[in-house]
């Protein structure tokens, strides 16, 4: 069964009120989230390597009495759903998870160097991307967060559709950063954080940022000034990173959303890595384990304390 058939069946049977998926956008390669409400629309449902928006974000915006909804979920989307169910933001019985194997998400910005490239001129084969017939290694076009993805196929689903996607090499850009001397690292982050214009696209695209009032926009207490200076951007992004500790599902939606192309997910991925390494916890993957900040062990790391 293909994704479209699955979605159409659900809508025809009226077992769900809608199918949350992707459809083609107005620009080549871009896709946009869409809530399919009737079976005729399903022809427009697509799943391509350009469907990076984390759909869990959109579930939070549905009215409370919406009823059951089906959602197309890659590995990271399914992790996000698990966390949101655990945090009582969604009800599992109101979800029908249409699991899909993720081929790895391609950064459409990296295709910009080919002028007037059409969607029909790009094809994907085993680990390569064919652009106007010329093969290129797929991994150099993938998003940084996808290259270090551990769960490309969903962990939680009601039905798993499509074939398993071809593997690509695991590449951890965080390790490369850790190897730099600390002055270089700060130079890098200070430059990137200074570029931020605080449009909050990263936060709004994040499936885990559902606070009614964000600390960044809070007036009382006032944490940061609305103007984007390095020190205010620093508090915004690090504050968000701390809020996401043990919650970030490493989908990279924040980085994809950034209109300036700041590699902002690096911070959140680093936090997820710290939590994984030292507290043996992965958000949305470990279903039983308690969230890292609501528990403790007496032998937690202590060497950093004076």
């Amino acid at each position: 069964m293909t994704l479209r058939e699955g979605a159409r069946k659900l809508l025809e049977e009226k077992s769900v009120q809608g199918v949350l998926g992707y459809k083609r956008g107005s620009l080549p390669f871009r896709t946009r989230p869409y809530l399919f409400r009737n079976p005729q629309e399903v022809e427009e449902l697509v799943f391509t390597p350009f469907c990076g928006t984390n759909l869990a974000r959109y579930l939070l915006r549905l009215p409370g009495d919406f009823g059951k909804v089906a959602v197309v979920a890659k590995g990271c989307d399914s992790r996000a759903l698990t966390v949101l169910v655990r945090e009582h933001q969604l009800k599992r019985e109101n979800l029908y998870i249409l699991g899909v194997h993720c081929p790895g998400m391609v950064d459409w910005r990296k295709l910009a160097q080919w002028k007037d490239l059409k969607e029909s001129e790009v094809a994907f084969e085993e680990g390569t991307i064919l652009i106007r017939g010329v093969p290129h290694p797929l991994s150099s076009f993938l998003e940084a967060s996808c290259k270090r993805c551990r769960y490309r196929s969903p962990l939680e689903y009601d039905i798993l559709l499509g074939a398993e996607a071809s593997p690509f090499p695991f590449e951890d850009h965080l390790a490369a950063l850790w190897r730099l001397p600390k002055e270089k690292r700060w130079e890098f982050f200070a430059q990137e954080l200074s570029r931020c214009i605080r449009c909050y696209a990263c936060r709004n695209a994040c499936p885990m940022c559902y606070c009614k009032e964000c600390f960044a926009e809070s007036h009382k207490p006032l944490f940061i000034h609305p103007s984007p200076t390095l020190r205010d951007n620093f508090v915004f992004h690090l504050g968000r990173a701390m809020h996401l500790a043990g919650r970030c599902v490493e989908c990279g939606a924040c980085e994809r959303a950034c209109p300036l192309g700041i590699p902002i997910a690096t911070l959140f991925l680093a936090v997820a890595e710290i939590v994984r390494e030292h507290f043996a916890f992965e958000a949305g993957a470990s279903v039983e384990a308690p969230a890292p900040f609501v528990t403790y062990r007496e032998d937690d790391p202590n060497a950093f304390i004076l």
Binding site: R32, P33, Y34, C199, A201, N204, A205, A257, P259
Partner: peptide
């Protein structure tokens, strides 16, 4: 208005 995330990327740019 459905798909809009309500970030300020459009207005700031």
């Amino acid at each position: 208005a459905w798909g809009c995330l309500n970030c300020g990327a459009c207005t700031f740019l």
